[in-house]
Amino acid sequence: MISFQPTVDEIAFRNLARNFAKEKLRPLARDFEEKRQVSDEISRGINELGFSALELPADWDGLELPLISQVQIVEALSAGDLGGVQGFRGPGEAASLFRLVPAHPLFNKIKKTTREKTWPAVAFLNGNKPNHSSSLRLELQSSGGGYLLNGTSRPLRMAKYAGYLLVGLKDTTGEQLLIWLEDHGQWRLLEGDYRLGLLASGFSKIQFHDTVITDEQVLAKGHEAKVLLSQMLTRTRVLEAAKEVGAMEAALDHAAVYTAQRKAFGQEIAKFQGVSFTLADMSIKTQAARHLVWQSALKVDDRDPEGEAASQSALQFAHQSLRFVTDCAVQLLGGHGYVQDFPVEKWMRDAQAQIIFTEGESELLLDHGERLIVGEERGGLHDFIQNVAASNPG
């Protein structure tokens, strides 16, 4: 039997995160969006409390917490403001790779800066994501003992501020590579308003033109790169899904309080059947998503072979639930739901941007299906199909 009972330390960390989110993040959420960045004061507070180092390895002066502990903390933070959480400058998705290969010599420079608590931003370019736009294509071609990289990426979180770039990409022969870039001269930023939400998250496209990639900049290639990328994505999926659960909790709580106070025809609108049923559905979706995230975190911590499939299932269900819960919150507030005096319209926009920025629902299903076809992870097929069927009966 799986136990979701938090430890004493987890409760203390979660309460600390919840208080910070309520007192610091939520009141400044609109300011972050207007200025298109999280303030230095908030970033310092995040660093001082250790929230930027949850995933970092211990020999980097990180906390190296289990995923089951991390998901509770990032969920509590995201309940304050998902956009603010995604706007923190730091190691981002690359933290999971640092944890997997902490002693890699390519990380020596950034390892020193993180120990000094300067926390430079790292952007992650997953070139393996399906891309149907001819203008957003990347090509990595072998050339003279190294590689030439050309093309334009999708908008990447933190690309605007990134001092480092982690690239996962296959070359023209189909070989998987993980590449680490430090020199800004190797890429060009194409800034713009690429999102309706997560506006403080530093989104920007990155363009390469005959960028020379030397063997010294290659972290791993072939099977090793494939395994590392898979393990990294498994961990980041769980963490991103936890952030989405936090955003659901915020939208649900706000809608519940609003409908309990707003009156129509002489009674609180929360007492009307249509409203109460909607709130119940929102609560069920939020709690189900939370349980899937926690279950996947435990599987990854236990190095369960089904951990990757569980992470895909958790993120796919979180995407669907996040869209449903934030849309319902806007509708339950009626006309107020679309007014910036109320936070739900921002949360709905942030939710859609979050789903686009991470692996989309169709991408998760396609990737999982391909692995099932070739015979991998068959043990988790039944649970995965049940989760998908439950979230999308049609």
Rank of each mutant, 00 (worst) to 15 (best):
R188F: 08
S134Y: 04
G87H: 06
S391N: 07
A260S: 12
Q176W: 12
K205P: 03
H382N: 08
G369H: 07
H382D: 04
T358G: 06
Q287F: 09
W180R: 04
K271F: 07
G394M: 14
N387R: 15
G163P: 00
D215W: 08
K112P: 01
S39P: 08
G197D: 09
S283E: 05
I373S: 04
I179N: 01
E345A: 14
R26S: 07
S313H: 05
L56A: 09
E191H: 02
G375F: 13
S134M: 07
K205V: 01
L125Y: 02
L199Y: 07
G87Y: 03
A318Q: 02
T172E: 03
D31I: 01
P130L: 00
K243N: 07
D59R: 10
L56K: 03
P91F: 15
S311E: 02
Q217I: 01
K112Q: 14
P66S: 12
D59G: 05
V101K: 12
L149K: 04
E33H: 08
F88Q: 11
G92M: 06
Y258E: 01
E139D: 12
A76G: 08
E240I: 13
E240P: 01
R137Y: 00
A76M: 02
Q86M: 11
Q141M: 05
T152L: 15
E224G: 00
F277L: 08
G266M: 03
Q340P: 05
S43L: 15
S230K: 10
I373G: 00
Q217M: 15
T214D: 14
L364Q: 02
A289R: 02
G92K: 00
Q261E: 13
D183L: 00
G375R: 12
E240F: 10
V85M: 10
V344E: 05
L239T: 02
S134E: 11
F32L: 12
E240W: 13
F208G: 04
F324E: 01
A288S: 11
F98C: 03
V122R: 11
L198Q: 14
L140E: 04
Q267G: 06
G84F: 14
L49I: 00
M282W: 13
L228H: 08
T118S: 12
Y258A: 01
I46F: 15
M248F: 00
T358N: 06
E244W: 11
Y194P: 02
H254A: 07
A247G: 06
Q287K: 04
P155H: 09
G146I: 05
H382E: 09
R235N: 06
S52E: 09
G50H: 02
V74R: 10
S96A: 11
E64Q: 13
T278N: 04
A256M: 15
G168D: 13
Y258G: 00
T118K: 13
A220W: 01
V330I: 03
L169V: 13
K109F: 09
